[in-house]
Design a protein around this nucleic acid. Structure first.
Lengths: 203, 203
DNA sequence: CGGCTAATTTTGACAGTGTCAAGATTGCCG
DNA sequence: CGGCAATCTTGACACTGTCAAAATTAGCCG
């Protein structure tokens, strides 16, 4: 019993948690490249290699941060769909807006959550996978429902449709984040345009 | 006269060109992070800092590579739209497929062309901008035409529509490249689904 | 053909990075 | 209180991009 992570710790004072917090902070301001293990250790007040007793890799640290990001978005998403008295069409609309705004508000985090750094370059933690995969599964489930309700074309394969609609959101988010051919002032109009595109009865 | 870049050069044998070629090669196999100035210099057979007389930065080198990528894609794109005897609807279809396949065939290059590395982190070269911007402008022009022909919804703002449709392509490309929730075997079906989504008279 | 200038390349150096191996410290449980 | 294991530190290594100064070389002009 009392393996770790609940009792007051040895030297520092719950390092692991402090690391994730501080790292998220640094990620947000400095960006993914500006976040270095050594600077992080410095900021928290421990020595360079102290981190390696709580995270195997820099990769593991990043996975932990991303994981937190997924959890937070998942909560927001749940809140949207659990609203009673809101029509499904409006939920879709709200979902799109919130998704894009979440990305625009936390560009570095979004980049980390869905970028090549974790998913292609490195090996995502099992723990991260177990949080990230259901996130897309949810999109598929929702797409199926929207099809059944006539909100989205019923003749398209659900999986493909989910990939494409989510791909659209992802694409818009990245255009904004990377600052190519779009900026924040376009967000609302772009969202509306996107919703109109894949939500069936046009008006 | 004879400023450079046409006569046989001094020591090496047209270093600048060799660098871009070799760098593109390394980018393709090793990825954007695996491409280091020192390894590149080594591979070409010059010393570490020789590159800095042809490129101010690593950033400048990357811009040159990306520029070449834009040129190549632009050529492909032109070829599609200049075909006589092909209906515009089929051109759109072909455009979508080729775009995604270009990205899937050159993942690292695509990542460089449209990624944060150049557009957000660093400062894109003027030269790069002058090649990249028209690329999107072309998308806008095409979107306008498609709207006029009734292929795409005429009531949407052209600029927004162009952003969203291209965003969709971009999103799908990135999902494939970064390997999240999609892989190459899905390409064709995803493309068809996308085309159906934003091309008006559904069938 | 000789020499000067300017383009080109090299060597040395510096401040960073992630991470491994060993040693020092510390808290906790028996 | 003793010992053990968790925790943290120090030292080191192989990398990275890039600057300054020295060395090399090519091309042009007289």
């Amino acid at each position: 019993m009392s393996k770790r992570a609940d009792k007051s710790p040895y030297h520092h004072g719950n390092l692991r948690e402090s690391l994730v917090i501080k790292a998220s902070e640094m990620l947000h301001v400095e960006g993914i490249d500006g976040l270095s293990m050594r600077k992080l250790a410095d900021a928290v007040g421990v020595s360079r290699t102290a981190l390696y007793h709580h995270f195997q890799d820099k990769n593991a640290l990043l996975c932990a941060i991303a994981e937190q990001g997924f959890a937070r978005w998942h909560a927001t998403s749940e809140r949207i769909f659990n609203q009673a008295k809101v029509k499904d069409r409006d939920k879709v609309r709200q979902f799109v807006h919130d998704y894009i705004n979440y990305a625009a508000d936390n560009p570095q985090l979004y980049e980390l959550m869905f970028g090549r750094t974790l998913w292609k370059n490195a090996t995502p933690t099992e723990s991260l996978k177990s949080v990230a995969y259901p996130s897309f599964q949810h999109q598929v489930t929702m797409t199926k429902r929207w099809q059944q309700q006539g909100l989205m074309p019923a003749n398209e394969d659900t999986l493909r449709l989910a990939q494409v609609t989510w791909g659209t959101l992802h694409g818009i988010a990245r255009l904004l984040i990377d600052g190519i051919y779009a900026d924040r002032t376009h967000i609302d109009e772009m969202c509306e345009c996107a919703v109109n595109l894949f939500s069936q009865p046009n008006r």
